[in-house]
Design a protein around this nucleic acid. Structure first.
Lengths: 336, 336
DNA sequence: TTGTAAGCGTTATCAG
DNA sequence: CTGATAACGCTTACAA
């Protein structure tokens, strides 16, 4: 009843008021001024839901985070989102995020977001092989942008870090430091990024003709706990690895804890490295050798791609980002 | 046009279909079954926006996070949100969260969320003295629940940690360990929680007749950087403190870094303590003596209070939570 | 138990 | 430049 009220108050028609409010050009300057003033006077606020229903647009972008254990969002991704959110806000889009509890049906939450224009577009993160979310999105022709490349993606739909290359380089670093038996504690195997990282590790090992004991490769959640368990497993092998690569710094922290519990000294008789350059790694003991990429840029690119898809913008975007090694102490092995 | 289509397809009226779909009792079992089947057949999905417009309810709860530097959300609060979200989801409510970039107008984002039933209720966090958000919410009679007590709040509208008591106890701990010159690096001064913490610190000092040098008390963001700067300041005082209390573990990390840069050894010739029991503190060097509270419970209580307000539920809730000290090494001063 | 019709608050088309 | 009027897709009295 609100725009109607405002119209009556001003002795104008709803349509004229609507046009004035929305900056259409076919309104006399005088009328527009009157409307604007009137809106202020009666403290008018457009009903967003009604707008959405009538226009089919919400200016909301959604993202549904996988339930990250007991966290709403990981610190690493928190930064990516902050910058995406910020850029979107500059273009008058609001980023809304939610999470799915373990007991919830992921696809159903996606549907909730899509049905009825709650959001105009969706960010999809942690892409997986044969991702059902992507299939559904495609089927419904719903606009989306991915963090995480998948075969078939075209450049306007994703941004990613070159995980393969990153772990290739980190593995090479360990090999050059004299390690031959290198374990790799990877993330959940279904994730595209875990698979890429594994590829990078393997490529480095193969290039140097180092054989890989299948037991050196473990998959688990990106948590301290899982990493600690995997590290224990790996360290109790007969052919014990002398270096452990971890899928992220949280895992590296867990691996360090586990190795110390077993009497190994990370950073002196056992090399450990992580990924992500989380603050936890900078201040851990020993500080963790890690890999960093430009989280802020990645978030921005995601936002830009989304705007390109939804608006008439044509931002240039860089699809691939490179992670570079951050040298610290955890992989400094003194006794070779 | 969708429910209409479904109705036509089934040769029923829109209203009957609507009632059947929404579980009303005044629908014959037969009809209901037919509707359900038909909905499946044509893959019908209700338009949430239209529903919202017609019903005035969204089953969404919102939360607007203060732009936390470059993070979307702090790790500590991430856990609170995860459990709130989970409990809400069990009651078929979706928690949607967004953040405000530094350049955005906070109140405007709140209005966006309220206008037109995007959300049925709002969580307000990091309450401040004379909080304008609260004033606006009250004025609009919009349902909200706070994390952070403010004078005048009744028990059905907030949950909080007893910050005053927590910092009282932590201060006492330092005093009993022999410290007389204790600095306190507090969070932003406008936050209710910063004020409470300061009170606790002062109470402990007064109780033991220890005078407080005003320069020992500093306010800043809950970031490593700000904490490091404040620590430097405090440590270059003529009457240098022998213990530094920090508003959270991130700050403690910053304080440790700063003190080491100045040649002090945190945990042996300088006591440092934090708050929040973040994982960064568990693995820092030295590990940080901190305080922990039940983040999961706090999140749940927030959700319960919201449900009590919005639904007919009557959950019992505990308003105040206690933080207890987690002993680690950063405040273990060997040379008294 | 089902149908009719009037909203919900906007936008958008089409005359004037 | 302005005003009717019909959507948008669903809910909800009120009738039947």
């Amino acid at each position: 009843m609100s725009i109607k009220k405002l119209a009556e108050h001003l002795n104008l028609s709803k349509s004229t008021v609507s046009r004035a409010l929305n900056g259409y050009t076919d309104v006399s300057a005088e009328t527009r001024a009157k409307v604007m003033q009137g809106a202020k006077d009666i403290n008018y606020r457009a009903n967003a839901t009604a707008k959405r229903l009538a226009s089919g647009k919400s200016r909301h972008i959604g993202i549904i985070l996988p339930s990250n254990d007991d966290m709403f969002i990981s610190p690493a991704f928190s930064k990516v989102l902050a910058s995406a959110s910020s850029l979107l806000a500059k273009h008058d889009y609001l980023l809304i995020v939610t999470t799915i509890a373990p007991f919830q049906n992921e696809l159903k939450v996606y549907q909730d977001f899509m049905n009825g224009g709650l959001v105009d577009g969706l960010f999809v993160v942690r892409t997986r092989k044969d991702d059902e979310r992507i299939q559904m999105l495609n089927q419904r022709k719903f606009p989306y942008i991915c963090h995480g490349y998948l075969p078939g993606f075209t450049s306007e739909m994703y941004v990613d870090v070159d995980n393969e290359q990153a772990f290739y380089e980190m593995t090479i670093k360990q090999i050059l430091a004299g390690h031959q038996q290198i374990a790799f504690l990877d993330g959940p195997s279904e994730l595209a990024l875990s698979q890429s990282r594994l590829e990078g590790y393997k490529r480095a090992m193969n290039e140097h003709n180092l054989s890989i004991n299948p037991q050196w490769i473990q998959n688990g959640r990106l948590s301290e706990e899982d990493a600690a368990n995997m590290a224990k497993e790996v360290l109790s092998l007969a052919k014990r690895p002398t270096a452990i690569l971890c899928a992220d710094d949280i895992m590296a922290v867990g691996a360090i804890a586990a190795s110390e519990a077993l009497g190994f000294n990370a950073g002196s008789d056992l090399a450990i490295a992580g990924y992500g350059d989380y603050s936890v790694g900078r201040y851990s003991k020993p500080p963790i050798t890690s890999m960093r990429y430009d989280t802020e840029k990645v978030g921005e690119e995601m936002a830009k791609l989304m705007l390109n898809k939804l608006e008439s913008t044509a931002f240039e975007v860089q699809n691939w980002y490179k992670a570079s090694i951050v040298e610290r102490q955890s992989d400094q092995v003194t006794t070779a």
